[in-house]
């Protein structure tokens, strides 16, 4: 029998490290490029005549469309293996998570497959986003009451 510490030492010795510099550089470039594309789209939508709120919304929707389409055509995973967090953190990653789960679970049915699995990766994002929002809402509400002097 080998000692656990001996095993751990061997695993540590032979497991290759991530190529941090390469990964981070690629993530920076891809993440930056996607945000720049967002900004360009925003300028386009503003130029067409949408107000700033609508333009912002349209930018998000456009990038979600792009992420979902590239996923559906089967290229997203091939890009993401290089871009890493560069495509994960922008809203394109959210679109990819939703679309890939939906496509994948199609074989298990519309309700029991797509219906259940579509939230598999996106669910936690929505859940904890909303929960943080509620927490902030409570704090902010109490704060407004105190400001109006009606809390105590």
């Amino acid at each position: 029998m080998m000692e656990t510490s001996y095993k751990k030492k061997l695993i540590k010795k032979h497991t290759p490290h991530s190529r941090v510099l390469r990964d981070c550089t690629l993530a920076f470039l891809f993440g930056g490029a996607i945000c720049t594309l967002g900004e360009l789209l925003y300028m386009l939508y503003s130029y067409i005549g949408f107000d700033s709120e609508k333009s912002g919304m349209l930018v998000t929707v456009s990038l979600i469309f792009l992420g979902a389409l590239v996923t559906a055509l089967g290229f997203f995973d091939n890009i993401a293996r290089y871009s890493g967090a560069g495509t994960l953190v922008p809203v394109t990653g959210f679109a990819n998570a939703v679309t890939s789960e939906a496509m994948d679970s199609r074989s298990e049915g519309l309700v029991t497959g797509i219906g259940v699995k579509i939230f598999n990766v996106a669910g936690p994002v929505i859940l904890y986003g909303i929960l943080s929002g509620v927490l902030y809402g409570i704090i902010y509400y109490v704060y407004t009451l105190i400001q109006r002097g009606s809390f105590f």
């Binding site: 890009i79 495509t87 990819n96 990766v121």
Partner: peptide
């Protein structure tokens, strides 16, 4: 993960 999910191995 799903087949088309964009992750790094």
């Amino acid at each position: 993960m799903p087949i088309e999910y964009g992750g790094q191995r």
